[in-house]
Design a protein around this nucleic acid. Sequence first.
DNA 1: CGACACGTTGACCAAAATCAAACACGGTGG
DNA 2: CCACCGTGTTTGATTTTGGTCAACGTGTCG
Lengths: 228, 228
Amino acid sequence: MSCLCLPMGLPLEDIPELHDTHTFTLLRKGEALFRQGMPFTGLFLVRSGSLKQVSTTSTDESLVTAYAMAGDLVGLDAIGQSLYPGTAMALETTTVSVLPQERLSELGAQLPALRQQLCRNLSQEVHNERLMLRLLLRRTAEARLAYFLVAVSARFQRRGYSASRFRLALSRSDIGSYLGLTVETVSRTLARFHKQGLLKANGRDFHILDLETLSRVAGASGRRGMGG
Amino acid sequence: MSCLCLPMGLPLEDIPELHDTHTFTLLRKGEALFRQGMPFTGLFLVRSGSLKQVSTTSTDESLVTAYAMAGDLVGLDAIGQSLYPGTAMALETTTVSVLPQERLSELGAQLPALRQQLCRNLSQEVHNERLMLRLLLRRTAEARLAYFLVAVSARFQRRGYSASRFRLALSRSDIGSYLGLTVETVSRTLARFHKQGLLKANGRDFHILDLETLSRVAGASGRRGMGG
DNA sequence: CGACACGTTGACCAAAATCAAACACGGTGG
DNA sequence: CCACCGTGTTTGATTTTGGTCAACGTGTCG
């Protein structure tokens, strides 16, 4: 269920570049790491802060398609077309390390394990996205938001932060865009969760009070499921 | 917009196995090519007929997560966990060629181009699924179904069949499951399209009359979009 | 023929989008 | 310091969509 995040588990610790603090790039809030349509130049590892990836469709809709926090890899979905499929924008002051394309090829040649692992991560990602989004497709707003919060909480935990208290740099409308809901619905649903004692949310600071129940809400289908 | 299909463009024509008609496997309607949870043994190329992939979630919901027709590759999403993440079931009499895992590794070692292409396809797929499903998430039932039909039509065309007349082996409830809609909504929406002169659908035979308008309906957001 | 899966249609209702308005907050400039 | 603005957030009233329940066709297979 590690769904809302970019893949992990790559043996990145073996790559010296990523630890060279000289190659860090600093982004201020609102600055773009890359823009939609730019040719693929490499992957990025988020060191601190967070980014959102926004894709604009042919019909001029902007969708938040990914949220990357410290430890996440950004740019994997650019490999396919050799173009970045969205714009990665810093949600706060953010640092990233760069893993240029040519270096990636070199490493791939040297370390078959890396190559293989990258492929696995991609395959895994295909499956996760398919299943999760198809699940969201038939979930109520309540379940979608609960699911999202539980996933984010788990992600913070895996990174060594508190699972119950965290700052989520996404705005309400970013969350709405990510989950396919309007701002108003996000706001109202959070208020409902608050009233039920499941969490406290003022602004972008979240405090999960009842992860147990929240997980249950996330799992509740609320809509008819079928196929078979 | 080549979204609802498994990736293509792999240099599969270079692989003799796939042309050896002796290795074809025949499946009758309802038979499974592989079942969810089985260890990954290889990929399959659909030769004739069609399959649906059904994934059962932890909460016992069955979701149709993919639809594969002649020419599509099946099993790509199994590489990640080395397990098939769903059950692939024949929707009609279907033949597939097998590309076993060990052979895949051999070929990958021999042909770097194949490896690279596979990786690209996977990356592409990640992006497609993300974008399409997030798009569907904020679409009305009408737009979802229109989008689906347009995509299927394009797929038939690319395979050399008519874009306007085709037989879609999925049942109404399969379509509903795939798009996150109930059977009733699928049925009603098709009826509305019929009344508007956009298509004729009796049973599983479809005749697209106005692809132009249908595409427009598919693109119409119908819901508020945001993020930026 | 009946059993059964699939498909369609109608009446009703709940969920969430829409429209609208007000509120909180941070920054800017007087 | 405060007035002012813009952005983001919340809340309320209303409407639309589509899910739910239920009944009824249609076709196929034994």
